[in-house]
Design a protein around this nucleic acid. Structure first.
Lengths: 268, 268
DNA sequence: CGGATTATTGAGCCAATTCAACATCGGTGG
DNA sequence: CCACCGATGTTGAATTGGCTCAATAATCCG
């Protein structure tokens, strides 16, 4: 029935693996439904309706959160993959603010205004709190990513930015091939430039320089091989964000949500 | 007893006016207590303990959220005033990440790990959800500010950045004097530079140029008069964030928190 | 008043941009 | 199959915006 069931080989139950935060499960009760949206590469979803009324969790694929200035300049605020959240913006209405799919992307859309309704499983109080805890955690992650990116744009030079970008993408999308790391970037040089606050030619020049220094190879236009990822990372004055771990999130969840769970029964 | 009761003339009950989000009230039950911290100008509070375990709401004053790179470079992530939130960071541990008071500042510290305890008024379920809703809202505001700043650093040139900064500060701190707007900046040129991803000399040069063009006046080192704030804002390709309104927050609160309030009685 | 800190201004330099030419890739139709 | 075309990527030359370094000025504070 759903087109993505076919194109992705039925991988899209709202499993824990797909939706790490389990927010999607909380909202849908564990089964995929109309809240799931499929975007094809290039498809856009507006964010700037004047308030944060909806959030979207990425279940599959990769999408860019974009912001457009009045004169056409564009800044990509984040490059988001499975488990990441994106939410509505209050500003950015007139100049535009949107999500843009870089690959085929499946989202779970959540309307905040309806989250309080009795339609959600487990009762309005108990799961409501859990829901909003999860929402907090995942948005806190987004804030951390945004803060880290702010430092990148404010204080790293172009070579450092590109190096950090490659290391970050390698950690997110790469797979080991012997000693090397192989990845495919589902975006153009212009997308990379708009993410890093640079321009296309600069990206190209730095890629060429890194290639000449044998830090990266480009088997094709979109494919990248990094012979020694650790060596690349050592050139940076910042830590690479770790996307594999969500332990810091659960620590807060345990703190706020779980105790209230256990006492919930005693309370009512 | 508390030094700030004296120095600020007893203005510091945890009133709605001081803590717009009312998070502080939810946590403290409405009365100021040990959770309140007073920082003097220059005082620091570490943020990078490896996880988000605490959040701080500013009740009074102005503070900078800072991030330090291994080589000494510094980026100010945000300049926060009353009602704004700041929270722990997972990354930034080794390189440093901290809050720095720019004026005398009063904070309400909230330990996330203890928010679930029965010590909080109203019961663990009902107010727990409200608490976490408020927390979500205020952190969403922080994310919006961070996103807007990302665009500033990524796509605005130095003149635009400084102009935006002045307009933003004027909206936050300024008071009208006839047609003009008067404000005092509680920070050095270096702080401004670290906020805008520029250096001290550049800030100084742009201030001088704006002065020559009669867009601003500098009655003293820290005081600024803007003859026509609207004219200044018209030079920008972005909207000035509106800090006076919190309506977008309450819309979400109403959506998630209030319905569960009303059904809470029926449920238990 | 004196010393330290902070701010301003100038000269020269370098990194990143702009503009332009050319190369490569992917897709389409003859 | 290959020729063609548009889109994307690369490279070079010239320009410029912002930085570094350095000297001077203003301000703060004991």
């Amino acid at each position: 029935m759903n087109s993505y069931d076919i194109s992705l080989g039925g991988k899209l139950e709202c499993s824990e693996a797909m939706c790490k935060s389990r927010l999607c499960q909380l909202v849908t009760g564990g089964s995929p439904d109309k809240r799931h949206k499929v975007l094809q590469r290039g498809d856009r979803l507006s964010l700037g309706d004047g308030a944060c009324r909806k959030v979207w969790i990425i279940l599959y694929g990769m999408a860019a959160i974009c912001f457009g200035l009045a004169d056409g300049r564009r800044q990509i605020l984040g490059l988001e993959t499975s488990g990441h959240i994106m939410c509505g913006m209050n500003n950015g209405g007139q100049n535009g603010s949107w999500i843009e799919a870089l690959t085929e992307t499946v989202l779970c859309e959540m309307d905040l205004a309806s989250l309080g309704s009795p339609a959600y499983p487990g009762g309005p109080c108990r799961d409501g709190q859990r829901l909003v805890s999860e929402l907090f955690s995942v948005i806190h992650q987004r804030l951390e990513a945004c803060s880290a990116h702010l430092v990148t744009l404010g204080r790293l030079d172009s070579t450092e930015r590109v190096t950090l970008f490659l290391a970050d993408m390698a950690n997110r999308l790469g797979r080991p091939v012997g000693q090397s790391t192989y990845l495919e970037l589902p975006m153009t040089r212009e997308d990379i430039a708009d993410y890093l606050g640079l321009n296309t030619e600069t990206i190209s020049r730095i890629f060429s320089r890194l290639k000449k220094n044998r830090l990266v190879q480009f088997p094709s236009r979109s494919a990248i091989t990094i012979p020694d990822l650790k060596a690349l990372e050592r050139r940076l004055p910042v830590d690479i964000p770790d996307f594999s771990s969500t332990s810091h999130v659960s620590s807060f969840l345990t703190a706020v949500s779980a105790p209230s769970f256990s006492r919930d029964g005693a309370h009512s």
